[in-house]
Design a protein around this nucleic acid. Structure first.
Lengths: 214, 214
DNA sequence: CGAAATTTTGACCAGATGGACAAACGTTAG
DNA sequence: CTAACGTTTGTCCATCTGGTCAAAATTTCG
């Protein structure tokens, strides 16, 4: 009774309906939040997208913020998964290429997640700063150390591992976050489904060899 | 009387006060919009930031959307300036390096502009799609052709000029749009003012030579 | 089955927000 | 100086929005 549960109805245990409906709401909220941002989204919109009434939705999540918080918490794991897979053993250049490919696949397959995250960071990460400074930073530090090891071993060029990770994030997430711009600029011909493969080819080349002709 | 002016009080000509106050409002709106997004910002916030009352502000801009529209229109020129300077003559690799440096300087010196733009694109560019498909696309097409010329001449590696431009946008704007994340991950030591120089060094290296050790 | 617990709904509320308006106040040019 | 024009303010309004609540409907389980 006194322990700090933040979620809506669960004094003891989640029922089947609660699990189902909460998932439904989170899916709807992902759709709405990622398209309109937190403040740009209304509970009514989410409720409608989830096929239920507003008071009904509020039975499962007391407050709008709770939905967002739960969503972000679940999201972060998915979001960091590709980086988690970056493996110390195995050929460095292959590993990095694979990481870039995985991140690009995520931008293609989970653009809503990417935009939700981008939205949050853009606003100064008011609701997830602890996660950034905690879980995310820890993982980046760990993988930056791995990359540093590769550099010391002469397997890849000596540069800044942090900025390397940033540049991979930036270039890949760009295809989710700035999708409308990418499609508009490429035009109807080249902006179709093939754009991710083109991007993959380009990025692989860029990160391995740069632009200077050999 | 019948020509299509959208702006507030100007049946004929702007007065001195109108020019000054409108500039004041646009500056305040840049601050507020870039931090909270369009829907997340209120006229009251902008009015307060501009040091005037809400009705007074509404005397200069009839509607919230008008402020945003004017802001975006003025912004786009500044924003595309670095790309405009990309010059056909001159050494390609030097030109590209200079472009990257200029874009990074813009991310450093005009982060609010970058975030405002990112916010708008993230939401699907509902208010500036015409500018994207028009002015922006035209310029990119033009400069992509220049880059293509360099490739044909063997001055730089043969890849996709559009994705090259995207990757420069993405990596540089990242330092404005995702600033809080960058600073949080780098930590208090390395997240200080030096981060832009580190980024500049890293990006120059990446775009020229890639990661593969020679 | 039938009581208890869970879920759903309609009605309602308070505060925020975009915007209208007329009256008061300032400025400027003839 | 003063009339015309430009600027500022206080007040007001309709709508939107997050959230409450009690009653009704449904599900669960002994």
């Amino acid at each position: 009774m006194t322990d700090g549960f933040v979620e809506a109805p669960a004094p003891r245990r989640r029922t089947r309906i609660q699990r189902e409906k909460r998932d439904l709401i989170l899916e709807a909220a992902l759709e709405v939040f990622s398209a309109n941002g937190f403040r740009g989204s209304t509970i009514d919109q989410i409720a409608e997208a989830a096929g239920m009434s507003k008071p009904n939705l509020l039975y499962y999540f007391r407050r709008k913020e709770d939905i967002h918080e739960t969503l972000m918490q679940r999201l972060l794991d998915t979001w960091l998964a590709p980086l988690r897979e970056l493996d110390d053993v195995g050929d460095p250049l292959t590993e990095l290429s694979a990481y870039i490919r995985r991140k690009l696949e995520m931008a293609r397959d989970f653009p809503r997640e990417s935009r939700l995250f981008a939205n949050e960071i853009l606003q100064g990460a008011p609701r997830i700063m602890p996660l950034i400074e905690g879980e995310l930073k820890t993982l980046v530090d760990e993988k930056a150390a791995v990359v540093k090891g590769w550099m010391r071993a002469g397997k890849i060029v000596r540069t800044d591992p942090y900025h390397l990770i940033f540049s991979i994030w930036a270039t890949t997430q760009h295809y989710a976050d700035f999708d409308v711009q990418v499609r508009a600029v490429l035009g109807p011909d080249r902006g179709g489904d093939g754009r991710f493969e083109d991007a993959a080819r380009f990025l692989e080349r860029l990160f391995l060899d740069g632009l200077k002709p050999s």
